[in-house]
Simulated assay, not measured.
Amino acid sequence: MPNKPGSSQITVEGTWILVCTYQRNELLAQLLDSLAAVRLPADSSLTAPQVIIVDNAPEPAAAQTVAEHLPSAVYLHQPVPGISSARNASLDAVPQDAQAVIFIDDDEYVPAHWLSAMIDTANATGADAVTGPVLPVFEEGEPEWLANYGFVRKLEHPEGPYPRRPATHNSLVRFEWFAERGMRFDEMFNFTGGEDSDLFERMQRAGAKYWWTKDVLIYETIPADRSTQAWLHQRASRGGYVRTLKIRRRLPGPVVPLRIAGEGVLRLGYSAARVSAKKLRRKPVTFKDHYYWHEGLGMITALAGRRRIEYARQDAQPE
């Protein structure tokens, strides 16, 4: 996909970095410090990257953190709860003449070359979106079981066109998808998560092309309570719930529950077969082997009316 016809060149002046945060000021400070240290082109008119921070807490709790660690950033308080609402607020704050936005999470931090690598890759390939690896950094050290079991983040893909969907933890997107085509995050996913996979799936169906490069590797802080197999399994179950929401929206009708149930059962069976085969060959069972089981369970339990709410707040529970 090099030099996609009609793709415009992206500059650092035309690029905005979007961050949504919720009561994680220490981690946000780490991210802001890394953004402040990003290297800009020698001929840039900017002294710091252009950043928009959306604080989704009930009160503007991150204002001081932003002022102290990256005072040039645009700080917005979005009290309406939900991850999609926060992401859409960040998009609405981007100038209409912007060329690209970069999504990054508040528990991550970046190396100095990251921004230039993002923009250079987008310009060289003409891709609609550029993404790359996110390396987990464990607060209490990497657990011993992880060496064989694996983790959520996949670090290695072939350099080049990316047939899967990116995520909002490390992705540049040409802003025309939002300014001209009107793409936004679906607020149906406000409290479940999965809003980013839904957006990138819709973009892909509309013709968007994605590119993967290892040159934009960044780092994600993993706290102790997420460094467990139980948390990974819960995240996989949530993935099944989100998948159910997508199917119901895309294929409305009376037979949809049967399709969801059938797909869930198939995933359970596929996982069971993978695990059995690994055990027979005396090979380690990995997270990927178990993922399909818990995703299938998430789909089945969604049909039974059980919701997977990851981004709910005590002050605003979903109806």
Rank of each mutant, 00 (worst) to 15 (best):
S116T: 15
Y75D: 08
K214L: 12
E319P: 10
Y149T: 07
R205I: 14
A73N: 09
L40E: 04
A73C: 02
A272S: 04
P284K: 13
Y75N: 05
S227T: 08
S7E: 06
N25I: 01
V285P: 05
I300C: 06
P49Q: 12
G264P: 00
Q9L: 13
A316W: 09
I52E: 00
E108T: 02
R313G: 05
A272T: 06
V152W: 05
V216S: 10
T121N: 04
V275N: 13
W114Y: 06
Y270H: 14
V94H: 10
Y241S: 06
A37D: 08
R164A: 08
S44P: 10
A316H: 04
P158S: 10
F185T: 12
I260F: 00
L251N: 09
S8C: 13
P111Y: 08
T244N: 14
D128V: 06
Q64T: 14
G305L: 01
I309L: 15
E68Y: 10
Y162I: 05
V101C: 07
I222P: 09
G6D: 08
I222C: 04
I17D: 02
Q99N: 10
G194T: 00
V137Y: 03
K278C: 15
E310V: 14
G305T: 07
L258H: 08
R39E: 03
W114M: 07
R181H: 08
T213F: 01
Y162M: 11
S45T: 00
F200N: 09
L258Q: 12
V242R: 12
F151A: 06
E220S: 12
W293L: 10
G262L: 15
Y75T: 03
P161Y: 14
L28M: 14
H169P: 15
M183K: 12
E201G: 05
A277C: 13
D33I: 11
I83M: 01
A86C: 11
F185L: 09
E159R: 14
I104W: 15
G160P: 00
W145A: 01
A129S: 05
H157P: 15
D215A: 08
Q234A: 11
V265R: 07
A36D: 05
K246Q: 12
A224E: 03
S271G: 05
L40Y: 03
P111E: 03
V19S: 01
H77M: 02
T121V: 08
Q314R: 13
I10V: 10
G141N: 09
T11D: 10
Y292M: 11
Y22E: 06
W177M: 01
A261C: 15
P163E: 11
